[in-house]
Design a protein around this nucleic acid. Structure first.
Length: 269
DNA sequence: ATGGTCCCCTGACCGC
DNA sequence: TGCGGTCAGGGGACCA
């Protein structure tokens, strides 16, 4: 469920509680996540938090001897609890802090909690990731250069974390629509000029979504339990059969690479 | 290397 | 109210 804006919203919500704090302990109730939660995460107890950051859709809590790395998968969320509350089903673990508890919930169990030895960036899950879409290193020239000769659909291409991180299914559809690029077009057959427009669109949609606290379609909520408000700004995602806001043509839905894609056949070429 | 396909898992929703 | 089918915002693993 969470894409980059939702993960960023979560990081911004938990960071003030973590920064400058010492971890009380990490209480794991259910180790069954994408990978079994390693016992090593409990070594976080008593360690000072040196930093909290996001890399792609991973949340990194940097401690003295290593980092806790959290991924929210499709249905994960972190909540800040300032009063004691009985853990419920699917609430796999708690990070206990002096002034609150950060509680992880993940019904579908596609998320993860791992312990990373330094340097964290050498971890297999992080070392081959592409640039952050909101960073200087990302732009149309990068997309254009990487895509030469690639026959995969451009939508699939921009969702590949080795190309650029954090562009999930919702925002891929949105950005392609904004840039007027057909999602099924071969990545290698998109011009440099159109990649420039696509890069701008990716950046723009992600920044606006972050400002709205992410997109809540069904069950996403931020660390304070609040929904994201970007759903009301979606231009194509989830609008199959409804008229395109630019030309009135019915928005098409098609499965590309196992995921639903939404686009306008008239406005996107 | 690249490009398909499959799958992990639970819950919500829809039609009958 | 119950039941079966379908669909979800991610992404690793595997095969050709």
């Amino acid at each position: 469920m969470p894409e980059l804006p939702e993960v960023e919203t979560t990081v911004r919500g938990i960071a003030p509680w973590l920064e400058g704090a010492v971890i009380g302990r990490v209480e794991v109730r259910d180790r069954r996540l994408r990978w079994p939660v390693p016992v090593a995460v409990e070594g976080a107890a008593g360690q000072a938090v040196r930093g909290v950051r996001r890399r792609a859709k991973y949340i990194l809590i940097e401690l003295e001897t290593g980092s806790l790395m959290i991924h929210l998968g499709m249905s994960g969320s972190l909540r800040v609890l300032t009063e004691s509350a009985r853990p419920r089903k699917h609430e796999h673990f708690d990070i206990k802090l002096p002034d609150c508890t950060i509680r992880y919930s993940d019904p579908r169990r596609f998320g993860s909690l791992l312990w990373l030895e330094p340097p964290a960036e050498d971890h297999p899950l992080l070392c081959s990731l592409g640039p952050e879409p909101l960073s200087e290193g990302f732009g149309g020239d990068w997309l254009h250069a990487l895509s030469r000769g690639r026959k995969a659909a451009v939508k699939h291409f921009i969702m590949d974390g080795r190309v650029v991180v954090g562009v999930g299914n919702i925002y891929a559809s949105e950005a392609l629509y904004m840039a007027g690029v057909h999602p099924l077009r071969a990545a290698g057959r998109v011009s440099k000029a159109r990649y420039e427009g696509l890069a701008v669109a990716i950046r723009d949609v992600l920044e606006r979504a972050i400002r709205q606290g992410g997109t809540t379609l069904r069950d996403y909520s931020g660390s304070g339990g609040q929904p994201g408000y970007f759903a009301q700004e979606l231009l194509v995602y989830g609008r199959a059969g409804e008229p395109c806001f630019q030309c009135g043509t019915a928005i098409r839905q098609k499965v590309i690479g196992q995921r639903s894609s939404y686009y306008c056949v008239r406005c996107q070429r």
